[in-house]
Design a protein around this nucleic acid. Structure first.
Lengths: 190, 190
DNA sequence: TTGATCGCGTGACCTACATCACATTCAAAA
DNA sequence: TTTTGAATGTGATGTAGGTCACGCGATCAA
């Protein structure tokens, strides 16, 4: 029941829906549970769903030719995750999505999302709102990346998302900040 | 007439509209012309509109405490520009939008966009689609920023948008790449 | 209980890029 | 026409952060 309530509360903050509408929408989501370390989307595969986190923590990342990992996004409860590029353009995933901790997530297929958007105007509005938020956040991160040094970006991240501090190991934080784990370590030691 | 046709053709690629629908939508846009160097949105002011470029070229940028400029976005014909963060969150602009060359643009207010989105489902779809595209592009740029050196990013930019090469001075390209103009210059000289 | 792997710290050295300073060219403004 | 100020090139030097190498404790599967 928790998953349903979580999604309902989240959507209700943005758009008003009748209970029947929400039940109908919810019927298109499937709940899934994953263990720490399990892969949800693997690089090179087709992507069919996007995911809404109920509990736990995910990361989406890219690994380059030199096997260096870059984290595009963490996903904590009530955050959305997928390989959106692959999902929208119907191409193969260039990133991997996996679990930092045991996680419970709701998934909805691309086709079902589009169907719901068509059927219910409020759903279309909701997803437009959500992507807007993501777009603005991505722009801000980009700007911070160009403008600020590692220490500032690290502290900014922890101010924005203090939950991460206790859950996400520092080497992954470093991969998110686009910096080596050694440099991150040296910020406060040495 | 060119502005109208340009917008119509652009929207038609994404959603189907009747001529009356388009006329109605178009009636909410205002055409404006600006000279090279003119400011459209200035940092610190309230932002009420977003802009669709018909001709010319814009840049949106941020200036930090040390007076260093970072370019968030260029906008060529058929691209959209604004301070989206300020626009959506009804806060003061943190970025400036101005003209790299003489430009002709269509503007639509936030209120009118929301009104049209409510009135015409297809418009809501259209703007969701557009933001999606922007979001994915921003994620890609972020990843490239973390992963690639200046030379790669410069060539990537010119491959993606060859139009920029002839129009945008190199010091602005440098500000977009997040690198000093000297370093950009030294990529191919020295 | 024991390897083995992971997360983390730390020293030594390297490099991409920044900064500052100055010169040149060229177009716009006066 | 003259002047001003962008836009650009280039040398000298500084520095944030990368890379490599190693150690050490904690956790976890066998």
């Amino acid at each position: 029941m928790k998953a349903k309530e979580t999604l309902k509360a989240y959507i209700a903050k943005i758009v008003e829906l009748t209970d029947e509408q929400f039940e109908y929408i919810y019927s298109h989501f499937k709940i899934q549970t994953f263990k720490k370390g399990q892969v949800i989307i693997s690089e090179g595969s087709m992507v069919d769903c996007e995911y809404f986190v109920i509990s736990g923590c995910l990361k989406s990342f890219y690994i380059n030719d030199e096997l260096k990992m870059f984290i595009l996004q963490f996903a904590m409860p009530t955050w959305w995750a997928s390989d959106f590029n692959a999902l929208y353009n119907r191409t193969k995933a260039t990133t991997t999505l996996d679990c930092i901790t045991d996680s419970e997530i709701l998934c909805i297929s691309n086709a079902d999302r589009e169907k719901l958007c068509k059927e219910i105007h409020a759903v279309e509005y909701f997803f437009r709102w959500r992507t807007n938020k993501g777009y603005v956040a991505a722009q801000k991160r980009l700007l911070s990346f160009m403008n600020n040094n590692v220490k500032f970006r690290y502290e900014e991240l922890l101010t924005l998302y203090p939950e991460l501090y206790n859950i996400v190991p520092k080497n992954l934080i470093a991969a998110y900040l686009g910096v080596s784990r050694e440099t991150l370590s040296r910020l406060y030691h040495t």
